[in-house]
Design a protein around this nucleic acid. Structure first.
Length: 751
DNA sequence: GGCCATACTTAGCATCTCCACA
DNA sequence: TGTGGAGATGCTAAGTATGGCC
C-alpha cells in the first residue's frame, strides 16, 4: 500500500491544496500575511509588557481585515520563540521524557459499533409518551408534570419535604457498614421520572436571594507596615488593598514570574494616588514581607481557634448557605452551586498566561444582572445600591451574571450538579454518547474513506476526526491571540506539535504528539497510526513552517457541522464521552474477576477508571505529601508483615502445643490464632492494595473523568452486579449528582 | 463564512473537614 | 484529646458549542 499516496494524493484538486500555496496568488497572500503577522507578533510581544491589555485598536482592525482577506485559512500563530519555550514546558514546569509518567500510548479498549445496541434499562421499558425536543432515544422522564407558577407559591405543607434544604447527612463510615451509617433522606425528588420542557424553556418559576458579595476590605492594623526602598510607606486604602493581594501570594511561584509582576505592578499603580505613583516606581523595591507575615499569623490563629469559635464560624456559614445557597425552581428547592461572588484579587491564569497578575476587580451590585421569574420575590440589592439589571429569561439556567474585567467574559451563578436542570443535561449527554455507539462504525468507515478524498479539506477533517476518536483529543476552538496561554486542541495543532517517524521502537508509522492542552497540561503521546493517516500527515506538513497549522482547512465549526450531518447532536466532544464510557465498561468487564475480594474489586474499578483518565490525559501534580505518605504506608506494611510473621509463629507453636495436649482449650487457641493470622493477612493485603492504587495514581486525576465522562450507570450497574456498595465508588456529593443513575440503573445496564 | 456574544461544561489546584491513630 | 493527612469540597480558569448578525 506504499504507493497509495502517489496515486491518490495526486488526485487532490490542486486548488484546494494549501501546501502548494506558493503557486497561487491567494496563497501568496496567505504566506505574506503569515510573515506580516509574525512581524506584528514580535512587535506585540515587545510592547506587551508596556501595554498588555490595551492593544492598538487600529492594529486589531488591521489584523481583522487581514483575517477577512485571507480566504483560505486561519492564521492564528503567535510568537514562535515563545511557543518553543512553551513546548518544552511540562505540567510541572520541566521537560518530560516520554513514558515518564506512563502517558505514552494510553491503554485503550474500544467497542465496535453495535447496531442493535439500543439498550433500555428495565425501569424505562414502559412506553413513555413524551414530546421531545431532541432525539434522545432513552431520555424519557415518566410522569407528566405541569405546574403553574401560582401553584408554586401556594405550596402545600405536604410539599414541604422538597422545600427543606438537604440536610447534610454525615456519612460516618460509608459502605463497610462497620460504623453507623446515617441514612440519607429517603424521599428525594425523582425529577428523572417527570416530564421535561419541550419548548426550550428551562423553568417556569425561579426565585432566589441573589448573590453574597465579598466582604469589604479591612485595612491592616497600623503596626503592619509596607516598606519601599527599606523605609516604611503608608499606603492609601485602595493601594493597600491591592498590595495585600500580592502579599498573600508572596510564597507562591507566581510572584516570581516576570509577567505576573509586570501585570500586577501596572494594575496596582492604577489604584495608587498620584503621590504614590510618583514615589513607588519599582516593584523590586517594595517589601511586602511584614504584610505577608501578618496574613500567615492570621491564618495560623484561625487554625488555633477554640472549638466554640470554630463552631460559631461554621454556624454563620451555614446560615449564609441556608439564606443564599438555595433557590426555588419550579416547585422545588434546589441547591445553588456558587452563590458567592468571586472576591477581588490577582488573576491566576494557568500556564504562561499573558494576563497573570492583573487585578481582578471587586464586583459591585451595579455589575450584577439578576435573572428570576417576573412573579417571584426579586432579590434585593444591598442598601444604597442597585442591580445593573433584573431580567426574566427562562431560556437560560443562570441566576446571576456579571462580566469580569480580565478577559471580559461573563461569569454565572448556576445550580448545583445535583439539581434537576444539571442532571437532565448530564443524562442527555450520556444518551447522546450512547447514540454514537450505535453509529460509530459507520462514522469510522466514512472517515477512513475520506482519508482518500480528492479534497484537502476533507482529508484534513477525516484525519482530525480520527485523532479525536482514537486519542480522545479535544476539538480545539480558536482563541483570541495574546489573551490566553498558547494551548491547543486537535483542530489547532501546528506542525511543530507532531513528529513523524516511518519507523520507531519497532513500530511503523509513528506520530509523536507533544503540545500543551487545556490548562496548559502537556499532552505527550507516541502512537502508531494507519499508513494512510501517516501519509496524509506528511502531505499536510509539506512546505509548512513549524508554526503553521497542521489542519489549515479545518476549524471546529466546520468539523462540528460535518458531525451534525453524520448524527443528530454529534459534536467533537461526544467522542470523548463515548470513548471514556465505553473504555470504562470494557475495562471493568476485563479486570473484574468474581473470586476477588472487595478491596481487589475496588482496585480493579480504580484501574478501569485510571485507563480512562490516561486516555483523556487527566493529569495532576503529584501531591506535595506524596513521598511522605507513601513512606508512611510502607512503614505500616512492614509493621504488618512483622505482625504477620509473629502471628504465624504463634500459630505454629499453638498447633504443636495442641498436638501434645489434645484438649479443647488448646484446640480453641489454635482456632483463634488461625483467625488472627487470617485477619492480619487481610489487613496486609488491604494495605498493599492501597499502596499500589496510590502509586499508580500519583500523577493521574481520576475525579475529572468520573464526574464528567463516565456514564454513572456503568458504575452503578457494576456495583449492583458485584454487590459492591455504591458508596465505595461514589462519595456523598457524587451520589447526589448521580442520583438519577443510582435510581435507574440495574445490574445489567449496558452503555 | 467569519465574528462575536453567550451559555454552559470541564478542569486542576487550594482549602477545608474530619477520621484514624498516637 | 490533639493532630497529620487523605479525601471532600470550593473556587474559578479554561475549555466546547451555538446562534445571531453582517
Amino acid at each position: 500500500m506504499s504507493g497509495d499516496r502517489t496515486h491518490n494524493d495526486s488526485q487532490i484538486e490542486s486548488g484546494s491544496r494549501v501546501n502548494d500555496s506558493h503557486k497561487h496568488k491567494d496563497k501568496h497572500k496567505d504566506k505574506e500575511h503569515r510573515h506580516k503577522d509574525h512581524k506584528k507578533d514580535k512587535e506585540r510581544e515587545k510592547s506587551k509588557y508596556s501595554n498588555s491589555e490595551h492593544k492598538d485598536p487600529s492594529e486589531k482592525k488591521h489584523r481583522d481585515k487581514e483575517k477577512l482577506k485571507q480566504k483560505d485559512g486561519v492564521d492564528r500563530h503567535k510568537d514562535k520563540d515563545k511557543r518553543k519555550e512553551e513546548k518544552i514546558r511540562s505540567f510541572d514546569g520541566k521537560p518530560k521524557k516520554e513514558k515518564e509518567n506512563g502517558f505514552a500510548s494510553p491503554p485503550r479498549v474500544k467497542s465496535e459499533p453495535n447496531n442493535d445496541g439500543f439498550y433500555l434499562s428495565p425501569k424505562h421499558d414502559k412506553s413513555l409518551k413524551r414530546e421531545r425536543d431532541e432525539d434522545d432515544s432513552e431520555f424519557k422522564p415518566k410522569k407528566i408534570k405541569v405546574e403553574n407558577d401560582k401553584k408554586v407559591k401556594k405550596r402545600k405543607p405536604e410539599d414541604e419535604e422538597d422545600i427543606k434544604p438537604k440536610k447534610k447527612t454525615k456519612d460516618k463510615k460509608g459502605a463497610d457498614g462497620k460504623k453507623k451509617v446515617k441514612k440519607e433522606p429517603e424521599e428525594k425528588w425523582k425529577w428523572w421520572e417527570e416530564e421535561r420542557y419541550t419548548d426550550g424553556s428551562k423553568w417556569r418559576f425561579l426565585e432566589h436571594k441573589g448573590p453574597v458579595f465579598a466582604p469589604p476590605y479591612e485595612p491592616l492594623p497600623s503596626n503592619v507596615k509596607f516598606y519601599y526602598d527599606g523605609k516604611p510607606f503608608k499606603l492609601s486604602e485602595k493601594a493597600e488593598e491591592v498590595a495585600t493581594f500580592f502579599a498573600k501570594m508572596l510564597d507562591h511561584e507566581y510572584t516570581t514570574k516576570d509577567i505576573f509582576r509586570k501585570n500586577f505592578f501596572k494594575d496596582w499603580r492604577k489604584e495608587m494616588t498620584s503621590e504614590e505613583k510618583g514615589k513607588l516606581s519599582d516593584l523590586n523595591k517594595c517589601d511586602f514581607n511584614e504584610m505577608s507575615e501578618y496574613f500567615k499569623a492570621q491564618s495560623e490563629a484561625r487554625k488555633q481557634m477554640s472549638k466554640d469559635e470554630k463552631l460559631k464560624i461554621k454556624e454563620e456559614n451555614e446560615r449564609l448557605l441556608q439564606e443564599y445557597g438555595f433557590c426555588v425552581m419550579d416547585n422545588h428547592k434546589e441547591r445553588i452551586a456558587n452563590f458567592r461572588i468571586e472576591p477581588p484579587g490577582l488573576f491566576r491564569g494557568r500556564g504562561d498566561h499573558p494576563k497573570m497578575g492583573m487585578l481582578k476587580r471587586r464586583i459591585r451590585p451595579e455589575d450584577i444582572i439578576i435573572n428570576c421569574s417576573k412573579d417571584s420575590k426579586h432579590p434585593k440589592p444591598p442598601p444604597g445600591t442597585k442591580w445593573k439589571e433584573v431580567r426574566h429569561d427562562n431560556k437560560v439556567t443562570w441566576l446571576v451574571s456579571w462580566t469580569e474585567n480580565i478577559q471580559g467574559s461573563i461569569k454565572y451563578i448556576m445550580l448545583n450538579p445535583s439539581s434537576r436542570i444539571k442532571g437532565e443535561k448530564d443524562w442527555q449527554k450520556y444518551e447522546t454518547a450512547r447514540r454514537l455507539k450505535k453509529c460509530v462504525g459507520r462514522i469510522r468507515a466514512q472517515y477512513r474513506e475520506d482519508w482518500k478524498s480528492k479534497e484537502m479539506r476533507i482529508r484534513q477533517r477525516s484525519v482530525a476526526l480520527y485523532f479525536i476518536d482514537k486519542l480522545a483529543l479535544r476539538a480545539g476552538n480558536e482563541k483570541e491571540e495574546g489573551e490566553t496561554a498558547d494551548t491547543v486542541g486537535c483542530c489547532l495543532l501546528r506542525v511543530e506539535h507532531i513528529c513523524l517517524s516511518p519507523e520507531k521502537d519497532g513500530q511503523e508509522f509513528v506520530v509523536e504528539f507533544d503540545f500543551l492542552g487545556k490548562d496548559s497540561i502537556r499532552y505527550y503521546n507516541k502512537v502508531p497510526v494507519e499508513k494512510r493517516v501517516f501519509k496524509n500527515l506528511q502531505l499536510f506538513m509539506e512546505n509548512k513552517q513549524p508554526e503553521d497549522d497542521l489542519f489549515d482547512r479545518l476549524n471546529t465549526s466546520i468539523l462540528n457541522k460535518h458531525l451534525q450531518e453524520l448524527m443528530d447532536g454529534l459534536t467533537a466532544k461526544v467522542f470523548r464521552t463515548y470513548n471514556a464510557s465505553i473504555t470504562l465498561q470494557q475495562q471493568l468487564k476485563e479486570l473484574t474477576s468474581p473470586e476477588e475480594n472487595l478491596p481487589a474489586k475496588i482496585l480493579s474499578y480504580n484501574r478501569a477508571n485510571r485507563a480512562v483518565a490516561i486516555l483523556c490525559n487527566h493529569q495532576r501534580a503529584p501531591p506535595k505529601t506524596f513521598e511522605k505518605s507513601m513512606q508512611n504506608l510502607q512503614t505500616k506494611i512492614d509493621a504488618k508483615k512483622d505482625q504477620l510473621s509473629d502471628a504465624k509463629r504463634e500459630l505454629k507453636s499453638s498447633k504443636a502445643d495442641a498436638k501434645v495436649r489434645r484438649d479443647e482449650k488448646s484446640k480453641k487457641a489454635v482456632e483463634s490464632k488461625k483467625k488472627a493470622v487470617q485477619r492480619i493477612e487481610e489487613q496486609l493485603m488491604k494495605l498493599e492494595v492501597q499502596a499500589t492504587d496510590r502509586e499508580e495514581n500519583k500523577q493521574i486525576a481520576l475525579g475529572t473523568s468520573k464526574l464528567n465522562y463516565l456514564d454513572p450507570r456503568i458504575s452503578v450497574a457494576w456495583c449492583k452486579k458485584w454487590s459492591i456498595p455504591v458508596e465505595k465508588i461514589y462519595n456523598k456529593t457524587q451520589r447526589e449528582k448521580f442520583a438519577w443513575a443510582i435510581d435507574m440503573a440495574d445490574d445489567d445496564f449496558e452503555f
